[in-house]
Design a protein around this nucleic acid. Structure first.
Length: 595
RNA sequence: GGGGCUGUAGUAGAGUUGGUUACAACGCCGGCCUGUCACGCCGGAGGUCGCGGGUUCAAGUCCCGUCAGCCCCGCCA
């Protein structure tokens, strides 16, 4: 039989007790971290969210409690009354925050018992992730996740305070909403009342926040769940949280200035890091040119160097052909890496192949000149020019990729990231922000044979590029911006189209004709036609931001109840089959019952 | 859809060239212990080697398939 809580009221949290509480009578409640039974004397480490305190049970003080303590096991829930006392000479534990004191117990109540947990609730025990996820409620008792989620709370609170001070109003938008074309796959929710019709869960509150601008709220924000039915990654879950913002009467610079202030505030409050403002800005074109990717990790240099022109006339056919066919030849100079083994070089070659590169040419720069399978193809003049261009010195490793531009950039850009990690250039406590701007408005989708929006269909072109919308849509730049932190895209947004004529033109360019635009986005076009103010906004990925702030390797470590890579929940076992009755009500028949 | 890694007591691991009864640690159970603190000492229990099939006199070990977890490509406006 468990003891009743009765009228006991907790007076303190375990981890908060220090020498200043000595002499006080306290009432504590928490879990048993550990029992140390010395026969006549028992110590219990009692844990709550603030930490651990040692309870001392002495037969001279209360024999009944001592006897009861003999039954106590790990993770039992206890309530105790006792007096905070200094520990006897020589028994202070400097490793514990509460190590100067202990609580001399006068009465102990066992509020609940516990099965032996499948793993120890401590910071030492390493447990396979599937076990952790199945017993998430226990994993969440452990210090790492407790700290991560509490920091997440602090960040959310800081965001609310900052945005409130800046005149933003938090407004909720629907979760049951409308499926729209473009973008990620939607999660669909069948409507019982409207049999045969479906809601979609929002990929973002994009259209609603624009409508709120039309409605005159002027500055809106929301910390909001978004849903995308796509495959998962270490930093991607199908349901995730955005800090979603929209502002009226602003330019890109206005948005970026307000939001980098928010980032600086978050980093100061959450981890006491000063972010130097303004955050540097880099055009999309320059980012690709120098780093190969639009989310460069600026914690280290190691820039890509374009050498297409230098090798266009060389005898090395691989390079010359690529140059002749509009491709791109670029190189990295990995300083001092000529010591890499053949095996390491093969590993780097395999790595670039993941991104579609056909191979990786390498050169070790030695006292005797180039040591490389491709050295023989180049004249002395070409070698000298390449060495000069790449700043090659003895001991360097030069790495080349030649392919069509998108592949060269991606492969070498990712290789840059990998080398940065391999060479230890990416310190965890180093935070390098950068805004990426001037994205192209469109990119060409080879599969669908049409232009698609790089950001989304509501993004405004740069005003100076609007004349080229018809003649050269591929060259039109967007008033879009991404915030990148240590190689991770943590946010992105744009100035939106507020002119209904431009919006209709935009849909046309995306292959959405007037009728379809009306059907899918009629409410937006209507809203834009009733005096929509110029507006723009941004959304930040709270989960990714938390990963960086906590140093987590996985997005699962900053989410209380995350999904597995197959988008299931090992705790609740969602998703699951539903009853025939439920399906009938929804007018749904499954094409094939899975076995 | 594709590539890769992992899977052995509750937990995390070792297990040689295929060869007797699958190891030790932590945890768990029992006992002892009045100053420990990831207490200590003595004793004990605990295994469908993910699952299925195959090769073999013999499989944790080799082969094929499959499931699960993780990482990546595609996908993610």
């Amino acid at each position: 039989m468990n003891d009743k809580l009765g009228n006991w009221k907790r007076t303190h949290r375990c981890g908060d007790l220090t020498a200043e509480h000595i002499g006080q009578e306290v009432c504590l409640m928490g879990w048993v971290q550990r029992r140390r039974d010395h026969g006549g004397l028992i110590f219990i480490d009692l844990r709550d969210r603030e930490g651990i305190i040692q309870l001392a049970l002495d037969p001279d003080r209360d024999l009944a409690s001592l006897k009861k303590a003999e039954q106590v096991r790990n993770e039992f829930v206890l309530a105790v009354h006792g007096k905070v006392s200094p520990r006897p000479e020589g028994t202070v534990n400097p490793k514990m925050k509460t190590g100067e004191v202990e609580v001399e117990i006068s009465e102990l109540r066992i509020l609940n018992r516990s099965e032996t947990p499948p793993f120890m609730i401590d910071e030492y025990t390493e447990v396979a992730e599937n076990i952790r996820l199945k017993y998430r409620f226990l994993d969440l008792r452990r210090p790492v996740l407790q700290n991560n989620l509490r920091l997440r709370h602090l960040v959310a609170k800081t965001v609310r305070n900052y945005l409130d001070e800046q005149g933003f109003i938090e407004i909720e938008t629907p979760v049951l909403t409308k499926s729209t074309p473009e973008g990620a796959r939607d999660y669909l929710v069948p409507s019982r009342v409207n049999t045969g019709n479906f809601y979609a869960l929002p990929q973002s509150p994009q259209l609603f926040k624009q409508l709120l601008m039309v409605s005159g709220f002027d500055r809106y924000f929301q910390i909001v769940k978004c849903f995308r039915d796509e495959d998962l990654r270490a930093d991607r879950q199908p349901e995730f949280t955005q800090i979603d913002c929209e502002l009226s009467y602003v330019s890109r610079d206005d948005v970026m200035t307000i939001m980098e202030g928010m980032m600086a505030t978050i980093f100061k409050v959450a981890i006491d890091v000063e972010v130097a403002l303004p955050i540097p800005r880099l055009s999309y074109t320059e980012a690709l040119d120098r780093f190969g990717v639009d989310n460069p990790d600026l914690r280290f240099d190691l820039e890509l160097i374009t050498i297409t022109a230098l090798v266009a006339d060389s005898q090395f056919k691989v390079f010359a052909d690529v140059a002749a066919n509009g491709g791109l030849v670029k190189a990295l100079n990995a300083k001092g890496c000529a010591t890499f083994s053949r095996k390491e070089l093969d590993g780097l070659t395999d790595f670039v192949k993941i991104y579609g590169a056909k191979g990786l040419a390498w050169v070790k720069v030695t006292e005797e000149g180039w040591q490389s399978p491709i050295a023989k193809f180049f004249t002395a003049d070409e070698l000298a020019a390449l060495n000069r261009e790449l700043g090659a010195e003895v001991g360097d490793l030069l790495l080349f990729v030649a392919d069509k531009p998108s592949i060269t950039n991606e492969a070498l850009g990712r290789l840059r990231g990998r080398l940065g990690q391999k060479l230890g250039l990416t310190r965890k406590d180093d935070y390098r922000f950068v805004w990426i701007t001037d994205f192209p408005l469109f990119e060409y989708d080879e599969e669908e044979k049409r232009h698609v929006a790089v950001h989304h269909p509501f993004t405004s072109p740069l005003e100076e590029d609007i004349p080229r919308l018809d003649s050269a849509p591929g060259s039109v730049r967007a008033q879009a911006y991404d915030l990148v932190l240590n190689g991770s895209e943590v946010g992105g947004g744009s100035i939106r189209i507020h002119d209904p004529a431009v919006q209709i033109r935009m849909f046309e360019l995306l292959g959405i004709d007037a009728a379809e635009a009306r059907e899918k986005f009629g409410f937006l076009l209507d809203a834009l036609s009733f005096g929509a103010p110029p507006h723009g906004g941004i959304a930040f990925g709270l989960d990714r931001l938390m990963m960086i702030l906590t140093g987590a390797e996985s997005i699962r470590d900053v989410i209380a109840f995350p999904k597995t890579q197959k988008a299931t929940c090992l705790l609740s076992e969602a998703p699951n089959e539903v009853s025939e009755k439920q399906l009938q009500e929804l007018g749904i028949r499954l094409r094939a019952r899975q076995k």
